[in-house]
Amino acid sequence: MTITITPAANQRMRQFLDQSPAAAGIRFGVKRTGCSGFGYVVDLAEAVGAEDQLVEVDGVPVVVDSKSLPLVDGTVIDFQRQGLNASFVFHNPNATGACGCGESFTVS
């Protein structure tokens, strides 16, 4: 599994982890949502489960569940600020389409 984290995303993730030292890492995955099928999930991982894979990406522990693995493999995670808004941005080579608002994506 390959996940890339840009320096901006790395800095933001480290800020979250510094505020929650008991966290096992950053949980990255997908859930069914939106009009296109899947939406990304980025949150603190409280623990690493039996169905999870833990990888370290540039010093950041990233936890991905087994169902999300094939859908996020190869994804580049960035963090961008635009005016007052700030969010993680995903560049996923597995995505074959996205909804008009960009909140969800499809895979073939």
Rank of each mutant, 00 (worst) to 15 (best):
T33C: 15
M1L: 10
S87K: 11
G102N: 10
C35G: 13
N94P: 01
I77A: 03
D58M: 06
L17Y: 03
C99S: 11
G102C: 09
V55G: 05
V48M: 14
S66I: 10
D78K: 02
P21R: 08
E103L: 13
N85H: 12
V89D: 02
L71A: 05
F28E: 02
P7V: 01
G25A: 06
I5G: 00
A47D: 14
I26Q: 05
A22N: 08
D58T: 06
G25H: 04
P70H: 10
A45D: 06
R14H: 08
C101I: 15
I5F: 05
N10G: 09
Q11W: 00
L84V: 06
I77G: 04
P21K: 10
I77N: 07
V57G: 06
G74C: 10
N92C: 11
I77Y: 04
A45Q: 11
D52Q: 12
P7H: 01
Q53W: 01
N92A: 09
E51R: 13
C35R: 14
P61D: 09
E56T: 15
A47L: 10
L71Y: 11
L71V: 12
L54A: 14
D52S: 10
F79Q: 06
P61N: 06
E46N: 15
G59S: 08
K67N: 12
G74K: 12
G49L: 15
V30R: 03
F105D: 01
R12P: 00
N85M: 09
F38D: 02
A98E: 13
R27Y: 15
A98P: 00
A9H: 02
V76W: 01
S68G: 05
V30T: 15
C101Q: 11
D65Y: 04
I77E: 01
T6D: 00
I26L: 12
S87T: 06
G83T: 07
V55K: 09
S66C: 11
L54G: 05
Y40K: 07
D65V: 08
Q19M: 12
T96M: 07
D65Q: 11
L84H: 05
S87A: 14
G39K: 07
Q15A: 13
T96A: 14
K31C: 08
